[in-house]
Amino acid sequence: MTENADGVSAGISRRKLLATTGLAGAGLLAGCTQSNTGSDQNGGGDSDGGSGGESDGDDTTPTSDVLSGDIEIAGSSTVFPLATAFGEIFQQEHPEVNISIQSTGSGGGFANFFCPGETDFNNASRPIKEGEMQQCEDNGVEPVELTVATDALTVVVNNENDFATEMTVEELKTLWSAESAPTTWSDVNSDWPDEEIEFYGPTDASGTYDYFIEAIIGEEGPGHRQDYSATEQDRTIIQGVEGSEFAVGYMGFAYYSTNTDRVTAVAVDNGDGPVEPSLETAKSGEYAPLSRPLFTYPSKQSLAERHVAEFARFFVDNTDNEQVVAEEVGYVPLDADQKAEQVDKLETAIEEANA
């Protein structure tokens, strides 16, 4: 196993979802998906069981019964546990496929790995930017945007904090804006204690960072404060907030959902009263403005490789899997219409890649 710069082992879930839970390996997803991958052992992509049909490449190119090859994935720390969950189960189904996943941040993944053509997928917690699209185009890489879940970006405080468990969007903006840059809680709200704030959050390579600016600070505003402990490791944010009574941080909901005893989630008031982050409030849209879509971007060029295309199908075919996406990882699954749209988009891309 290899490790990225932040010490995240490629191919291993931070939560070790599949090693210890009742997923029972490949059996669970094999029963929940209509993906071609479920029948590759009996004839690969030529099976009639695929959700999106067969590509031209499968019709004209002889294939073996066994999928094999390497798949390189980088990008969002938020999407990391979902990609890892599906990757590990896919490898149980197809042990000769090696899937390596790095948590580099959405922007770090695009700039340093995906757009230079070094990875097959980039996970992202926000849409690809115009500059990243241009970088990819300059290198002959064509991203295919696939929505895979919905997240509730979560602000957390220490469990001893009994004063800021509810915050307005304006208070969050004051906390994190480079312009206001408060040093004590009383600088944000005069009713709060005159205690120094410790800040923890993702780096500027993170899609979570970008989305927080868009949703809370404003893209035309003064920008995100830089005097905070920045990391691509969400567990470090949890540890920091847990260890300091007057700390605050933010991250994807999945990491909070497995640490609810260690930190407290802040209910966000967007004008209609405070709403706590949850799968239900994210799905309904009540948890505004911090509900957001999550993405993975396969390279169309990589989709010409059968094992990459089959993993992409497997990933998308399971975006409506309640047990894995919601119960095990902690995100809102796609509904049937959303999934069908992503399946169609992927199948079109695979067909074009094999044309």
Results as ranks from 00 to 15, higher is better:
68 S>V: 03
348 T>W: 00
63 T>H: 13
83 A>K: 05
197 I>C: 07
98 N>H: 12
15 R>M: 08
205 A>K: 07
150 T>H: 10
114 F>E: 05
167 M>E: 00
118 E>L: 14
40 D>R: 05
221 G>D: 14
84 T>N: 13
58 D>T: 15
54 E>N: 11
130 E>M: 04
13 S>D: 12
163 F>H: 08
31 G>S: 13
333 P>H: 07
131 G>E: 13
300 K>R: 15
100 S>T: 12
296 T>Y: 03
205 A>R: 08
38 G>D: 03
287 Y>C: 06
310 E>S: 14
327 E>W: 00
24 A>Y: 03
255 Y>R: 08
236 T>Y: 09
1 M>R: 06
317 D>I: 01
38 G>V: 13
219 E>S: 15
262 R>D: 15
32 C>H: 11
44 G>K: 09
289 P>E: 05
106 S>T: 15
280 E>F: 00
170 E>I: 03
324 V>K: 01
181 A>R: 08
125 S>M: 06
223 G>P: 08
88 E>V: 06
250 Y>P: 02
329 V>T: 04
170 E>F: 00
190 S>Q: 13
138 D>N: 15
308 V>T: 14
163 F>D: 02
154 T>H: 10
124 A>V: 11
292 R>F: 02
142 E>S: 15
171 E>Y: 04
83 A>C: 09
193 P>Q: 07
151 D>R: 09
119 T>Q: 08
88 E>D: 14
166 E>A: 06
228 Y>K: 13
159 N>V: 13
143 P>R: 08
202 P>A: 04
344 D>N: 14
287 Y>K: 10
340 A>K: 11
166 E>K: 11
239 Q>C: 01
256 Y>A: 09
18 L>K: 01
259 N>P: 10
217 I>H: 01
58 D>A: 13
331 Y>Q: 02
316 V>K: 01
298 P>C: 05
152 A>N: 09
216 I>E: 00
268 V>Y: 03
308 V>F: 02
129 K>H: 10
142 E>Y: 10
93 E>R: 11
54 E>A: 12
243 G>M: 07
200 Y>W: 15
146 L>H: 08
132 E>D: 12
202 P>W: 04
16 K>M: 01
194 D>E: 15
306 R>M: 03
26 A>I: 04
183 T>I: 03
262 R>G: 06
247 A>T: 10
191 D>T: 07
355 A>N: 11
96 E>V: 00
187 D>I: 05
73 I>D: 01
146 L>A: 06
225 R>C: 08
111 A>W: 07
98 N>M: 02
160 E>S: 15
332 V>R: 03
126 R>N: 14
54 E>H: 13
4 N>I: 03
310 E>D: 14
95 P>A: 04
64 S>E: 14
